[in-house]
Amino acid sequence: MKKINYKDLVKRYYEELWNKQNRDMIDVVFDDEITFRGSLNIEAKGKKEVRDYMDNILNGIPNLYHGIETIIEENGVVAVRAVYNGTHRGKLFDIEPTNRRIKYNGASFFKFKDDKICDVWVLGDLVTLKDQITQK
C-alpha cells in the first residue's frame, strides 16, 4: 500500500475542508481521536468537537479563506505558515458583526497517524485579528 504524501493531505485540509467548507472532509483527513487547537485558542477533541469549532469560526467569518504561504515537512511533521482572510459577519469573541475585512497570520503544525491527521496545533495572530474587528 502506498503511503500518502502528508503535505498533500494538509493541502486538502485547507482547500477542501476550510476553503470549500466541505465538512465531509473531516472524516477523510482526520483520525477519529483528532486533537485540535485552533487559531482562536480553542481546543477540540474528536471529530464532533472539530466540526463544532469549524461551525463557530465560520459563523463569525463565513467567507474565511486559508492561504498557504509556506509548507514544510520534516520527521513526519508538517508546518504551515498561513494567512487568513475574510469578513467579520457573525459574532466572534463575543463581538457582534462589524462587516470589516480581516487578515491575519498563523502557523500550524500537523502530526499524523495511519495516514490521517491526528493532531493540529495552530498559532494565530489574535492581537491583529481583534484589533481589526474592534477598531472604531
Rank of each mutant, 00 (worst) to 15 (best):
K2H: 09
K3M: 13
I4D: 06
I4S: 09
N5F: 05
V10T: 12
L17Y: 05
W18L: 12
Q21I: 00
Q21W: 07
Q21A: 09
N22H: 14
D24A: 14
D24R: 12
I26M: 08
V28I: 13
D31S: 14
D31V: 02
E33K: 13
E33W: 09
E33P: 01
I34M: 04
T35P: 01
F36R: 03
I42S: 07
E43S: 13
A44R: 08
K45G: 10
K47H: 05
E49T: 13
Y53T: 06
Y53Q: 07
M54E: 01
I57C: 02
L58V: 00
I61P: 04
H66P: 02
H66D: 09
G67R: 11
E69K: 11
E69H: 07
I72H: 11
E74P: 13
E74L: 14
N75L: 04
G76R: 15
V77D: 09
V78H: 05
A79D: 01
A82V: 11
A82N: 04
V83N: 08
Y84P: 02
N85A: 06
N85W: 06
R89W: 03
L92M: 08
L92W: 01
D94P: 03
D94I: 01
E96H: 14
P97Q: 03
R101C: 06
R101V: 08
Y104Q: 09
F109D: 00
F109E: 01
F112Y: 11
D115L: 03
I117D: 00
I117N: 02
D119E: 14
V120D: 01
L123Y: 14
L123I: 14
L123K: 05
D125R: 13
L126K: 05
V127E: 09
T128A: 10
T134P: 06
